[in-house]
Nucleic acid binder design. Structure first.
Lengths: 335, 335
DNA sequence: TTGTACGCGTTATCAC
DNA sequence: GTGATAACGCGTACAA
């Protein structure tokens, strides 16, 4: 049978409460006592029982990743990042897939009734779901937001997506493009407005008029990208470059271009956002914005843990972006 | 404060043991009593406390997905499938990423010392890791295998990959291909040998001699596919069709073909295996074998749960495959 | 068929 | 700075 706290106490010659103190880094323990306890812990290979801890301590030592409908790649990256932080801080990771619309809240509360995580990490579009946020506040559940539309008053992690896009579009402009189209993301994501804002801002800076016909809606999905790309390329005067709000939609542009016999980048320049694996795998390799998604998962988790430790702990961290110029963009052909 | 089992007992006018019986579907409870208890449960919105349950019952009501280095898409699908089954059977899902080689066992045992899952689902190449299997047997931990090299004596889920590949290659042969190359998977995977076996078997059936020069090694990664594709296309007499052992490597073939100015399928037919999202997203859409990965995760989990319930429960389930003929394969050009 | 009493391995309250 | 002892909420021999 595995050793219990009581065994450790016996070996160390102290009471179980003292062992508990040492294990939980509580004050009021003599250094010498602490060492004796730690020695006993090591000698017995003692591991605290999580269930007992949770039961007595009113917390589960687990964090939930709550999501409803993100892209698989994005989710996987965030998850890996969280896993790393959870591992480092001895937390468990709980997956919290929730339904959309009116299913969100019931699913979320069911998650809490069962697993009782000590806090949650929110990813878009849930990050900005007022219903969810209100519920969490009301229940006084600590949460950390990834890419929230409004960073003020929240902890978590974000990136300056607008600036990133400004740089990306500036690259296209520098190559000589002037008819640059944009496939937007879904309205519910802050990413949608930031990336669109960056697009407009860059055009303005370049002295290019904003043409609403060159901006179409997408849903971040490959399929929505197909529709959007077709709409753009059916234009009387089609764009020479297309900036898709994420890589999946950019991949869809590749497909539509291929079907129409257009060569990228010779006949059409394409760029995306996120730098998911597909960006480097499709041919020609996609020019895009690198987002350190995995790190963002790690950071969001660390901030959450600090918030759990202290009511005012944690902050909103801004991570760096990078424009990755690859093979899918070049100067437009002369007419 | 949330209701406890004692509150339910009070409302139903029975003892807590009876409530426990009802909740755990134990026998020896009158139907009428059972109903009274259930009514009380519903009325109070009672949810058992998982920690207390685990502590008293010596089990965690959680299952672990153990993996070391699978493709992201594959992992995500399996995970989603498991999540579904876990949800349905009120289990929690624990992620168990473990290191490779000598790190595997320590990581695995650490997972158990912390989270104590009631069972684990293994995916390749861990499914066939003798060290892992021995350890699990020794610890008497129930496990379920996905695509094990040797299905006998194990429970879990598999697919007849050899037959699937035979059908896939037969399709190429029917189109007139005779120089068909194969990029193999990593040796540690059963998938590597099954797919290779199907390849050879189909050639034999078609009366085509096996040419070792047309078979190169890959690692299932995109990068390894690049190397392999280059080797194949550098051949004095290059193949007219390439069967990559998975979709990621097939995507790499697309990239290399693109770089060399070869058009798919006009100049080269390509097919893969798995039907990951990328298969439908790249241009032209990839001919591949559909594997119901998510369902396989669900099935493996269900079998595991049966094994947990009964020492001899669960079995090895074989799921159906399907060859998806899309745009990447056509008759080879005449010389 | 139903109920009592104890144990699971921690944390936390208080006294010392 | 340290230690008895009572929770924490549920499962389960054992008794009835």
């Amino acid at each position: 049978m595995r050793s219990r706290i009581e065994d450790v106490a016996a070996v160390a010659g102290v009471s179980i409460k003292t062992v508990s103190r040492v294990l939980n880094h509580e004050p009021n323990v003599r250094a010498e006592t602490r060492e004796r306890v730690m020695a006993a812990v090591t000698r017995l290979g003692y591991k605290p029982n999580l269930s007992a801890r949770s039961l007595a301590g009113q917390r589960s030592y687990s964090l939930a990743l709550v999501y409803n409908n993100p892209s698989r790649n994005y989710l996987m990256e965030i998850q890996n990042g969280m896993l790393e932080a959870c591992h480092a801080h001895h937390y468990n990771l709980i997956l919290g897939p929730v339904g959309i619309g009116r299913h969100t809240l019931p699913d979320l509360s069911a998650l809490f009734e069962n697993s009782r995580p000590d806090g949650v990490v929110l990813i878009p579009p849930l990050t900005d779901d007022a219903v969810v946020l209100d519920w969490l506040e009301e229940q006084e559940i600590p949460y950390s937001s990834i890419a929230p539309r409004d960073p003020d008053g929240h902890i978590g992690v974000r990136m300056d997506e607008t600036t990133a896009v400004v740089e990306l579009i500036a690259h296209l402009v520098a190559q000589g493009h002037r008819r640059i189209a944009h496939i937007k993301g879904p309205r519910a994501h802050g990413a949608c407005q930031w990336r669109h804002a960056g697009y407009r801002q860059a055009l303005r800076a370049a002295g290019i008029d904003y043409d609403p016909a060159l901006v179409v809606n997408g849903q971040f999905s490959f399929e929505s990208g197909i529709t959007a790309a077709n709409a753009l390329l059916d234009l009387p005067e089609p764009p020479t470059a297309i900036f898709a709000a994420n890589d999946d939609m950019a991949a869809a542009v590749y497909r539509v271009a291929g079907q129409r016999g257009l060569r990228i980048p010779r006949d059409l320049s394409v760029c995306g956002f996120d730098d998911t694996p597909i960006a480097g795998h499709i041919f020609p390799a996609l020019t895009t914005v690198r987002q350190p998604t995995s790190s963002m998962g790690t950071i969001a988790t660390e901030q959450l843990i600090e918030r759990i430790r202290a009511a005012k702990g944690g902050r909103m961290v801004t991570v760096d972006h990078a424009v990755l110029v690859r093979e899918s963009t070049q100067a437009p052909r002369r007419r």
